[in-house]
Amino acid sequence: MIRFVDTTKVYSNGVVGIKNLTLRIEKGEFVFVIGASGSGKSTFLKLIMHEETPSEGEVYVNGYSVHNMPKSEVPYLRRSLGVVFQDFRLLPNKTAYDNVAFAMQIVEALPREIRRQVPLALGLVGLSKKARAYPEQMSGGEQQRIVLARALVNNPAVLIADEPTGNLDPKTSLEIMELLDEINQRGTTVIVATHEKSIVDAMKKRVITLDRGELVSDVQKGLYTDEN
């Protein structure tokens, strides 16, 4: 499903994002990627979604060779991924419904398909009532759930979340995590980068720990503090 083979990413300013990383994530897994700021968590996710390309080594995602991918194929890779960001990133001048529908319009889904799937996705994240609201009219937690609905609506094989609870209060964070778990139960591979100890410890999932770009530990049913 996702495979890094001796991957290194050095940014143009010399900063090392990822160093000699080799690992696999199988279909249906739920994985936390943890580490302090600058540990390479974000770089790891950026490499998966082709926001960055590796300086050395190989990256395979959903059957795509991301390390030597033609530019024209990038949209297709991204459509096979659902992406969730810390700062939500909803289109500001579209309603919740239209934001979710947008992901389906991109793949040129049939209008009746859109009319069926979007309410389902909104229902799944528990925000059917907010369909007509604009992002600025919603709380952070609500916005993040809309983002989740958008990420899910095309049934992606992999869901990537970069600090999805970074801007949310603990209670809302937990709700988002429960949603992610639920999504994972339906068969979607979920990869979450976070530095929130309480969440990682509560979920007891596979934990990949990075430090200065290097893999420090990789344990099943791990805790945030497993490396020590």
Partner: peptide, 15 residues
């Protein structure tokens, strides 16, 4: 930002 979001969701350039 809007364009960036569209790109992340997988929109191609012509879209």
């Amino acid at each position: 930002k809007e364009i960036e979001i569209m790109k992340y969701v997988g929109a191609n350039d012509w879209f």
